[in-house]
Amino acid sequence: MRFRLLQAISRFNIALGSVSGFATGLMMCVIVIDVAGRACFSSPLPLATEISVLLLIIKIFLGMAGAQATDSNFQVTLVIDLLSPRWRRYQRVFSLVVTLAAVAIITWLSIGYAITSTRQGESSFGVYPFPIWPERIILAAGLVFLVLQLVTDLIVTTLGGDEALKAGLPKHDASV
């Protein structure tokens, strides 16, 4: 395998995605405890709302790189299915370059905002204050991993090792 480091990056991002998976379980627990508390003892779990949203952010953004690593994103394949393997590779390079450019810009700006937000101690205010800045950091971090994955995919595709790399990774289906 020529791309040991790159494959390690992909594997790391997929593992990160499982952290995101765990957030679902936690979310479920937080909400069930909150409702049980409210229904049975008239005492809801303080900050249940805020914690659920934090978990949602973890879920969405720490899972993005993994979704890219496993090529799970929704795609219109109508036209590219008709391409020869060689053109298919050009298409994939093009797609990755475009995506990388856009995501890198958004990532850069999100990092900037995460820093601002952290400096200010950005928080929300329901009944109790709850910090928002950790969400901004998690979001930016997730995007950084996504950029890393896109770079990885771009290098591997350009050098023609894409199929070998993906073959070594688990498969996922994103469907609703």
Binding site: G17, G21, F22, G25, K59, I60, G66, D173
Partner: peptide, 18 residues
Amino acid sequence: VWRGLIDTGVTTSCVFLL
């Protein structure tokens, strides 16, 4: 369960990217 959590994570990320 493990598999379910991971797949849910991937799908959630994909849908929210959309």
